[in-house]
Amino acid sequence: MTSSNDYLIQFEHVFFAYPGGGSVIHDFSAGVRRGEFIALIGPNGSGKSTLAGLAAGALRPAAGWVKVDGMDTADPSVIGAIRRRVGLVLQNPDNQLVAARVEEDVAFGPENLNLPSPEVRRRVEYAIAAVGLDRLRDRPPHLLSGGEKQRLAIAGLLALEPSCLVLDEPTSMLDPRGRREVLGVLKNLVAKGTTVLQVTHHMGEAAEAGRVWVLAEGKLQADASPGTVFSRPELLQRLGLALPPAAELAGCLAARDINVPAGIVNLEDMVHFLCRALK
């Protein structure tokens, strides 16, 4: 076993069931390393959201354990410390915003930590800048676009200065522009050292991550780079998942007996390959 220090979040033989329902997570073991960008994909009802809740300590496993920075999420005495390390962003941005002004909303978390005003101010400035909402700081949330609202929700958690963000389908209610905005913010955060675990059903987004987890029926079906996962169309097809368009094109070309290198999952790689092949 790897030393627990490598992992920021670690799942070990985790089981979970909702009251009155069947098993949702079934013997799940995996780990999120510091600084990683993981995309979690899977069909509806596969347990993706549940896993996100477990990772952030919002849910406790029925059996097995989840550790954040070595702290067991089932231990009530460390839940505060876990909340400060892992932030969970929910699907609907509207329901996560608490204040009638952008700036006040970002301040909510640090205020709850009872930090002195100058420190609250510093964190608000940091978080607002990190998601690019500087110019909208005085707006009421209901006058923001979907993408702006979700960026604000992210800022609200960043103000707690977590090591890791877990996002439960943060872009599923957004238009393409909003989705691009949020993905841009996430990539930026990863570049600056924040660990990100993102649940998504948008394969183009998953292709941008460093690693992909495929979940079905509460079990981990694949854990590999996007290039590897998306070159296995049989698995994805069986689970009712689509391919990112670049991978789909690569598949169509391969079916026409054209030699396409493995691991092409995004536009950049495809353009690169075609330019070389056609010149």
Partner: peptide, 20 residues
């Protein structure tokens, strides 16, 4: 219009920019 072109349309544009 502030819309994102479909993948293949964007690909065509990028290839054209590269002279293909």
């Amino acid at each position: 219009a502030g819309l994102e072109p479909p993948f293949t349309v964007e690909l065509t544009r990028r290839l054209a920019a590269a002279g293909i």
